[in-house]
């Protein structure tokens, strides 16, 4: 649709405002993989509840907004093997790199972090090659 970019921009401003609140009030970097991963590998320490409540907000707001939309379809792959392999790669990869699209992308690049730029260029490159190979050459997605 033609207005997709406008909603992208508005959504982006909301995401960035969320990151700004988390930084200026909680003193923390809003990185989804770090917030989730810290709860998984036990490195969260005394920020455990802060993380859980943050994630509750992430889950709940789409529930509240859904009735405003005619159709909400995330178009999740029906290929179980693809889902499991992709999930393992995303989970292990973001924790090894210590960040994902929100941490390295939004929060890292906006403070001109070298690591943020290096990570973002790398995962966009790998994702582009991935879609090229898996969609256009192998036809699995």
């Amino acid at each position: 649709m033609e207005q997709d970019w406008i909603w992208g921009l508005i959504g982006g401003l909301l995401i960035g405002t969320g990151g700004a609140v988390y930084l200026l009030f909680n003193g923390r970097i809003m990185g989804a993989s770090g917030i989730i991963g810290g709860l998984i590998d036990g490195s969260a320490g005394n920020t455990k509840w802060e993380r859980i409540v943050f994630l509750a907000g992430v889950v709940l707001m789409p529930v509240i907004l859904q009735p405003l939309y005619h159709e909400v379809d995330p178009h999740i792959s029906e290929n179980l093997v693809v889902l499991v392999i992709a999930g393992l790669l995303v989970g292990a990869g973001t924790r090894l790199a210590n960040g994902c699209t929100s941490g390295h992308g939004v929060c890292g690049m906006s403070r001109l972090s070298v690591r943020g730029f290096a990570a973002t260029l790398t995962y966009i490159f790998a994702g582009g090659v991935g879609v090229l190979v898996f969609r256009h050459l192998l036809g699995v997605i």
Binding site: A32, S33, I36, H75, I76, S77, V82, L83, I85, A86, G87, L88, L89, V90, G91, A92, G93, T94, R95, L96, A97, N98, C100, T101, S102, H104, A118, A119, T120, T122, Y123, I124, F125, A126, G127, G128, V129, G130, V131, F134, I141
Partner: peptide, 16 residues
């Protein structure tokens, strides 16, 4: 890590 993440991101279209 970013290479692995990117491949998974492209495969499923999902990040964390």
């Amino acid at each position: 890590g970013s290479l692995l993440f990117g491949i998974g991101w492209g495969l499923a279209g999902l990040c964390p």
